[in-house]
Computed example of a mutant assay.
Amino acid sequence: MIRLFALDVDGTLTDGGVWMDGCGNEWKRFDIQDGMGIVRLRTSGVEVAFLSGRHSAATAQRAADLGVKRCVNGVLEKLPVLCRIADELGLAPEEVAFVGDDVNDIPCLRWSGLGIAVANARPEVKRNVRFVTSAAGGFGAVREAAEHVLFLNAREKDAVDSADGIHAGSTPEETEER
């Protein structure tokens, strides 16, 4: 069961473009459907974390807008941060999904139980994951990855419930009769 969904930001949650005005201001574009995927994960009980190699006020704002409490900006080595978050939550690597797009994400992708690359990720990134989205970063890839995790979690829960003799939609009395 995936309990932590961590992701890179630039190129994964965004299309990788950063608009700068020469006065220190920058803008990023975020996909609304990606945001809904993150909300759906959080609602299902999956913790979400943003790990960005660049410091960005826009990333912090997007995290706050989505209720993502774990947003680490400007981290060059993401794996120690990801391991610390997993440890704080009492999670093993197999309970962690990580979504990325570039070579600096590979250590997190390899360590995580479920490494996910966006469609436009570097080829060397795609070789180190279990799932590649059909959508590009910033254009629904995070939503697709979130839906994949929700599907896997539901399938695992159904398998556990079946092993315990619980059938979906059954009352406890009906389960005992079976």
Rank of each mutant, 00 (worst) to 15 (best):
V103S: 14
N153M: 01
F139V: 03
N73P: 08
G165W: 13
V99W: 01
L91P: 11
S52V: 12
E176N: 03
L66C: 07
K78I: 07
P93K: 00
A57C: 03
K69Y: 03
S162A: 15
E177G: 13
V149R: 01
G53L: 05
P107R: 07
I85P: 05
A146H: 03
D65N: 06
R29H: 07
A141V: 02
L150I: 05
F50D: 01
G11D: 07
A121V: 09
T175D: 12
L41N: 00
L114V: 07
L66I: 11
G100E: 13
K126H: 09
V96Y: 00
V99N: 05
G24F: 02
V39M: 13
K69W: 11
N73H: 09
G24C: 08
E77R: 15
P107H: 11
P123H: 11
P80H: 08
A146V: 09
E124Y: 09
E94M: 07
A163N: 10
R54W: 09
L41E: 03
A117W: 02
F131V: 11
D158C: 09
R143W: 08
N25H: 06
Q33D: 11
M20W: 14
A58T: 14
I32T: 14
G137W: 00
P80W: 00
V142N: 03
V118Q: 01
G138H: 12
L51M: 09
L4C: 06
E144R: 04
V75E: 00
C71P: 09
N73F: 10
S52H: 00
I116A: 00
V103M: 13
A159N: 11
D34E: 06
V18D: 06
E94H: 15
G37D: 06
L51T: 04
V39L: 14
P107W: 04
V129I: 09
C71L: 08
L7R: 00
M20I: 10
V149Q: 00
T43I: 14
D8L: 01
T175N: 14
G137P: 07
G90Q: 04
I38M: 02
V96N: 05
R40N: 12
R3M: 06
H167R: 15
D65W: 02
K28A: 10
G169M: 03
R40V: 02
R3I: 09
A121L: 01
G165K: 08
R62T: 10
V72W: 12
H55T: 12
A168N: 06
L82Q: 03
V132L: 05
D158F: 12
A136H: 12
V103T: 10
V118C: 07
A97M: 08
T12R: 02
V149E: 01
S112Y: 03
D164K: 14
D101I: 12
F131S: 04
T171W: 06
F5P: 04
V68Y: 11
R110Y: 01
L89D: 02
A58Y: 02
A168Q: 10
L13N: 02
G53Q: 14
E47G: 11
A121E: 10
G165V: 07
A86D: 04
W19Y: 03
H148P: 04
E173T: 11
D15M: 01
R110L: 15
D15F: 02
G140S: 05
A146C: 09
V125E: 15
Q33L: 15
F151L: 14
D164R: 15
G45S: 02
T43W: 08
V96Q: 11
E173C: 01
A159P: 06
P93F: 07
D87S: 15
G24R: 04
G74E: 05
I32H: 06
